[in-house]
Amino acid sequence: MTDVTITHIGGPTALIEVGGWRILTDPTFDPPGKRYFFGWGTMSRKLVGPSILAKDLGPIDAVLVSHHHHGDNLDPSAQALLPTWGTTYTTKKAAKKLGGNTVGLAAWDTTTLEAPGKLSVTITATPCRHGPAGSDPITGPVVGFSLKWEGQEHGELWVTGDTVLYDGLRDVAKRLKVGTMLMHLGSVRFRYLSGWFRYTMDAKEGLELLDLVKPTNVIPVHYEGWSHFQQGRDEAEKVLADHKVTWLNPGETKTVQA
């Protein structure tokens, strides 16, 4: 059995430490106050800065970027640092855009992290739909990530990425045994432009997904720090109260059994 340590840095950004690897998810290190434009008239303002500055992170071996075109998942500060952080795994479109030491993956593509003295970790891209049916041409490609290594007793570590609940996630529940889950929530909406359509899961959808996946450990991320999040921790926590969910404040660390 191998323990995995997860530090919630803020927003979607987390540091995963396992088997000698230090893996960063959806890095966002801009200071608060900036505005980010997502296309088609949508925008968001950053309300809170990262709990840990990029310069204080230490070495990073790999970065998981669910998508490159939204500043709440990869902001300019983080993008400038990607060449210093080892290999970046992301969508195929993002890999073409970002260049450098970047690997592009489509849903269900796999690759492997390998180095002397470290666990071999298989990375599998998982499907996402970042909005209502038919929104893919507008919202662009997004992937989640599953991490699998030898000795996992409870199952794979799954980072859902920015997505609503749809058949692609139900397929994940059928195909993967998930032990630890970093679940993107936030119920992203742009009410004046797209009404009540959501672009990430709310807690009700998260609850349905948990009932499908049945993970051992659940850590929510991507629900605070930007103005376009419509459902914060307080409301989501009430909905998910009957499940064993670990809420990490920004800067807080948790070690769980994989």
Rank of each mutant, 00 (worst) to 15 (best):
D3P: 00
I6H: 03
T7K: 05
I9T: 08
I9K: 02
P12S: 14
I16A: 02
L24G: 06
P27V: 09
F37M: 01
W40R: 07
T42R: 03
I52V: 15
L57H: 11
L57V: 06
P59Y: 14
I60V: 15
D61K: 07
V63F: 11
L64S: 07
S66Y: 10
H70N: 11
G71K: 07
N73T: 12
L82R: 07
T84I: 01
W85V: 02
K92Q: 14
K92M: 07
K93A: 15
K93V: 13
G99Q: 10
T102P: 03
V103Y: 11
A106H: 10
D109H: 05
T112F: 06
E114D: 10
P116W: 14
S120G: 04
T122L: 02
A125D: 10
D136N: 05
G144L: 08
G144F: 10
K148Y: 07
E150C: 01
E153H: 04
H154L: 04
L157D: 04
V159S: 02
G161L: 06
D162K: 02
T163M: 07
L169G: 00
R170T: 12
V178M: 00
V178S: 01
T180R: 00
M181Q: 12
R191F: 13
S194Q: 06
F197C: 01
M201N: 10
M201V: 09
M201A: 11
D202L: 02
L212W: 12
K214Y: 12
H222M: 05
E224G: 01
G225S: 09
R233M: 12
D234V: 04
V239S: 05
A241V: 09
A241E: 15
H243W: 12
P250Q: 11
K254N: 10
Q257D: 14
